[in-house]
């Protein structure tokens, strides 16, 4: 009867886990023991058949669906890198939101100087966070409208809501360095300030109905 260590020797020899010296000793034993030799040969043959009949790689049924299902589940997962608190500027960096961004930025710096008679608007400055996007405005006296034109923006999904704000007046509080923009009925539409890089930062916005 073999001892446990002899059993281990047998499989270590089969699996190539012996040192050269151990291997030489075991080979000597093998030559002197026909039963051991027969067992080793049987196990070698079995190992070879196992490897032949159990492929290490198989075709995944419906492979494309396999991948797409994983993507669907990843979309439902929490982000890998938790965002501490997405600042408004981080949000602004989303390419598909550039249009809305520019519109908001313009709203933040556009004073609708609605004089009692004229009703014209004057764009004081435009901020576009993506340098590859060029923004221009065009004002039509006849239509009493200001048109925002953006070049270099990616295609915007059809279901994306682009909103604009009508700003009646603004108030700037020098102490807390914020500007509040009011709508037609005197409601607060946006409260903006500037960050350390002198770029607009949205503090609050009234949801539009």
């Amino acid at each position: 009867m073999k001892t446990p260590s002899e059993d281990h020797d047998l499989i270590r020899w089969l699996d190539g886990e012996m040192t050269d010296a151990e291997r030489a000793r075991f080979s000597t034993r093998l030559a002197a023991d026909p039963d051991l030799k027969a067992e080793v040969e049987m196990m070698q043959r079995m190992s070879s058949d196992l490897r032949a009949h159990l492929p290490a790689e198989m075709t995944v049924p419906y492979g494309d669906f396999f991948n797409s299902q994983i993507q669907v589940r990843l979309a439902q997962e929490e982000p890998l890198i938790p965002e501490a608190r997405a600042s408004w500027l981080d949000w602004l960096r989303l390419p598909t939101l550039i249009t809305a961004t520019a519109a908001v930025a313009i709203a933040g710096f556009m004073i609708m100087q609605k004089g009692p008679a004229a009703g014209d608007s004057v764009v004081l400055s435009i901020y576009v966070p993506n340098a590859s996007v060029h923004a221009r405005t065009f004002h039509s006296d006849e239509a009493q409208a200001t048109v925002l034109m953006l070049d270099g923006v990616e295609a915007i999904p059809a279901d994306r809501k682009i909103v604009g704000y009508y700003i009646e007046r603004t108030e700037t509080d020098q102490e807390v360095a914020t500007t509040t923009l009011y709508g037609k009925s005197g409601e607060v539409v946006l409260v903006v300030s500037k960050d350390v890089r002198n770029q607009p930062r949205l503090l609050s916005a009234t949801p539009r109905g």
Partner: peptide, 15 residues
Amino acid sequence: FDVLVSRYRGKVYAM
């Protein structure tokens, strides 16, 4: 990750 899935799905599935 999708690229990695395509690369290794056959081996993971076989296992």
